[in-house]
Design a protein around this nucleic acid. Sequence first.
DNA 1: GCATATTTTAAACATGCGTTTTAATTTAAA
DNA 2: TTTAAATTAAAACGCATGTTTAAAATATGC
Lengths: 210, 210
Amino acid sequence: MAKRETTKDKILNAAEALFAEHGFEQTSLRQITAEADVNLASVNYHFGSKKALIQAVMARYLEVLMPALNAEFDQLEPRAQFSTRDVFDCFREPLNALKKVRKGGPTIFLSLLGFAYADIQGHLRRYTMEHFGEVMHRLLALLHVANPNLSPADMFWRLHFVLGASVFAQVSGPALREIAAADFGESIAADQVVDRLIPFLAGGVDAPTA
Amino acid sequence: MAKRETTKDKILNAAEALFAEHGFEQTSLRQITAEADVNLASVNYHFGSKKALIQAVMARYLEVLMPALNAEFDQLEPRAQFSTRDVFDCFREPLNALKKVRKGGPTIFLSLLGFAYADIQGHLRRYTMEHFGEVMHRLLALLHVANPNLSPADMFWRLHFVLGASVFAQVSGPALREIAAADFGESIAADQVVDRLIPFLAGGVDAPTA
DNA sequence: GCATATTTTAAACATGCGTTTTAATTTAAA
DNA sequence: TTTAAATTAAAACGCATGTTTAAAATATGC
């Protein structure tokens, strides 16, 4: 028999949901503790600070994603030839694995990542970069192999355009899906956004310069 | 002889600079009035509220950009054939015209737009969309002509990926330029970022689906 | 030049935030 | 059961924000 949900977990779960919907700064500890039905002070008791809570929320996903992503890269790296598309497809499985963390995990995580990345000069940017720095470098190297014609500087910028498109697509995803549903009469699942995103990104990276 | 800079303008200019650098929410009225060297209460006296001030800052640019952009579209629309690249190139001149508002106007405006877009559920999103709604629809229609093979839903999403990449490139532009300068020993002007962006966007939009 | 309207100023207000404190309570170990 | 540790609870703290007030200063129109 599983122990009843602990206070710490109640906080993490409530925080995660609110963060993914409204962002980190826009979510107050009072909202979180009300949603989690725990005392306000328990956040600082269990996590020490709001910053630490945010990082704890991210950590649950990063611990699953990072090994999986590196494994995919390990598999691709030794190959003599691969395409830009092959590189981006490396993200599919690791992202999908986040379903193990939670139903809707992939979407939730990408939203969190988006808010972290959008938080331009906060501690989150640094925290995220620390955890993604290695991935970014491997990604740059792999993309360079797939596109030897592009200069490192060009590839640098394109990689960041890629990040921008991905991140904002997720952050504004819910709002956009509403509009899409209204305009086109079809509701679009979050997974399908990634499916639509990857060809776009590959096309952008593979585009001729100038 | 021009009258000495009025309080209202001092506020607008200081606010614009701070907003473009740190975002709307992250900039306080006290920072703005200190920078402008005016009294704190004068913001509410002249503009009524912070929200109204933000909109006034945006308005100075939108009033220049919108007519120019619609003029470009008017020119392209009757043509029998045009490419995705042609559509995106419509933005070059209108953006460039923002230099009339201020030195560095194009970059400043795109930063402001980026923060407005990133502010997901604030009033800014609605305000921006109200002013860009028509442009968005024209843009969608034009892109559909340039890419008749893409379904409206696909094009809708790709347009938003385009927005995400653009917005992000501007918001995190300064930080990225620093990194790029350090890594590649080349300093990149803001205008050149747009030059790098447009081929990427066109490549993404033109990419095959699936 | 005076009366009136406009603008500037300093101070305070109300609110919400993350955090801290201190005491009560529950849990676990001896 | 008793004692010690861990957790929960309520309240307050200190701070920053946007906004409002009311008096002082300035500019405007007759």
